[in-house]
Amino acid sequence: MQFDEPETEHVTAAITDEETEIDMPAKPAIGVRIGKVAAYLASYLQAVPLALILGFFFLLPILMIAVVSFWDYDFAGLYPDFLTMNYTDTLGSWVTWKTYLNTLKYTAMVWGLTLLIGFWVAYFLAFHIRTTTMQMVLFLVCTVPFLTSNIIRMISWIPVLGRNGLVNTTLIEMGIIPAPIEWLLYSDFAVVLAMVHLNTLFMVTPIFNTLMRIDKSLIEAARDAGANGWQIVWNVILPLAKPGIAIGSIFVVTLVMADFSTVQVMSGGQSASVALMMKNQMSLLQYPAAAANAVVLLIVVLLMVAAILRVVDIRKEL
């Protein structure tokens, strides 16, 4: 299906060209030119609301953060200045480095797990479910929790993992463990588990999307050529799924790198993340310090996204 699109575009382009030629014989077409200018203008007018909103609520705030990160501050307010102190304070402290390392650790673990789970779920939906209706129903079953509150979904782990939670009481009753496992809740384990729970869907959706576009005859061909199931997945499907994996990875990596609420709630305040560090600075009104952290975090995240984008041109994938 994908391959047809450029062709149809050519065809329609040819048709419109023909039309203008038929409509406007010989004379230089002023009417057409006015029409083109009007269409051009319409595009601009249609794009203006988006540009204004993103300009004021996205671009300006980011620029403001970059500026404020060089300002001076005390408990009473911010003072325009050009200091590198906020950066040297942040980058010179071993706490920052440790926090970054911790955040990267979460990101790597959550990325690996969501990729593994997300790929197989998408693969199952795309290749093993035979009717489109069933595919859509099962896909929606996966999607619905994503549209509910993240915080509620975090809290929902408390009665499951807590000291007297479902897991511990069941295991004790079955005689498998003598005393409750303490590291189930308020630990790195809980943080990673909750993050996987919250973010796997961001991996499932784009991978499912790319898998659905794979021409089934490619798989037939591979099978005819003697490939076994595993070889088909590894050599045919996985390479074709790369764009989806890349888009999913961008979502998961940026969300986990910037997470503070999951870390705070699920670690019970025992672990740190970069965003949590920022949030604490913000609650102490140390905006310039938080801004310096924000700039560093932004650069790190954008570098990661750029690295992922080397694999795929997302504009082609939509």
Binding site: F58, M64, I65, T254, A258, M278, Y287, A294, V301
Partner: peptide
């Protein structure tokens, strides 16, 4: 404009929150 839109999805929420707060 397209890349600005995508960037808005990618930039961490807390940074946007802080930025708008400061603005």
């Amino acid at each position: 404009l397209f890349y600005l839109t995508v960037a808005s999805l990618v930039v961490p929420s807390i940074i946007i929150s802080l930025g708008i707060g400061v603005v």
